[in-house]
């Protein structure tokens, strides 16, 4: 008994330090990288880059600017239509309500800007070397990937939705001048706003997946442009039914069937379009996540 007592008192220091180290090692008392903490970190990283904020602001400017221009153009067109029966026929063929799609007329540019933002968020980690810090802090890697994905998708959705709304507010008085009405609260307006915002968030996710796979800013953005701008035109120019059919399955051509009031011929059904767009997001994102986990940083 006494021997044990002496033994335990003879070396109090190593025992104490070993004890405190065990607590550290187990991480029981000290917080590690849970998903919410990693998400917080990614939000900090996102908002502390000037380039990110500039891209977001440009999106708003482009959306509102194109909304105003398009309102003016639509007004001119409608004006001409009242005098020109041919123009009136053209207008009727477009379903009558031209004004409703005015606020989302800048969407092609919004998707390019926010898609590039998605690419850059991940590719810049690798080009600057930041990835080594990021994945040393989150060695499991996937929480950091998921957090970044959440940040870029939520931001893209919100920025697109807000700027579409702002574009609508700017367009209403302009259209009013030409005797056209736009009700931003109508169900078709809300549908356009939501679907387009989801779509841009999807493009940003595809961009981030490309940035993760290619790890190079220029390469990632070029691939994005290839999928969304080059492929649709190329598929149209190449003769043959295969490309005509394949063109429907490009992600950029899913928006029309998703937002149409009635089904437009030669496009996918609404549910098909939703599945196709989902596939365009899920496949590259899963592939990027798997490779991110496996490759060296």
């Amino acid at each position: 008994m006494s021997a044990m007592a002496t033994e335990s008192t003879s070396s109090p220091e190593p025992a104490a330090s070993a004890g405190s180290r065990n607590v550290r090692n187990g991480g029981r008392s000290l917080p590690g990288p849970t998903f919410l903490r990693v998400l917080n970190s990614e939000v900090i990283k996102f908002r502390t880059l000037l380039s990110t904020l500039i891209l977001l602001a440009s999106t708003v400017v482009v959306m509102v600017g194109f909304g105003a221009l398009s309102a003016w153009g639509t007004g001119q067109f409608a004006d001409a239509a009242t005098r020109d029966p041919q123009a009136a026929a053209r207008m009727a063929s477009q379903g009558g309500d031209l004004a409703v799609s005015v606020p989302t007329s800048g969407i092609a540019f919004a998707q390019l800007i926010l898609g590039s933002l998605g690419v850059l968020l991940m590719s810049s980690e690798f080009t600057t070397g930041m990835a080594r810090s990021t994945f040393a802090a989150v060695p499991r890697r996937l929480p950091a990937f998921a957090a970044k994905l959440v940040v870029v998708m939520v931001t893209s959705f919100v920025v697109t939705a807000v700027s579409t709304w702002m574009a609508a507010l700017v367009a209403v008085p302009i259209l009013d001048n030409y005797g056209l009405t736009l009700d931003p609260g109508s169900s078709q307006s809300v549908k356009l706003l939501l679907v387009n915002s989801v779509y841009v968030a999807a493009v940003a996710a595809i961009g981030m997946a490309l940035g993760t796979l290619i790890r190079n800013s220029a390469g990632g953005i070029m691939s994005l442009v290839g999928i969304f701008f080059v492929a649709p035109i190329a598929f149209q120019l190449i003769p043959g039914d295969f490309f005509k059919e394949a063109r429907k399955y490009l992600p950029g051509n899913t928006v029309e069937p998703l937002t149409a009031a009635q089904h437009v011929p030669d496009t996918l059904e609404t549910w098909q379009a939703a599945l196709v767009l989902g596939g365009w997001v899920v496949i590259p994102v899963v592939l990027a996540a798997v490779l991110l986990k496996r490759r060296d940083v």
Partner: peptide, 28 residues
């Protein structure tokens, strides 16, 4: 469970996003 509290590493002086301030880098 808490890797940064277990091991601190300087692997590369350039493991930082070049456009972010030192303070914000550490904060993140």
């Amino acid at each position: 469970k808490a890797p940064l509290r277990e091991v601190g590493a300087l692997l590369d002086a350039k493991a930082v996003h070049t456009s972010r301030s030192a303070y914000n880098h550490l904060l993140a």
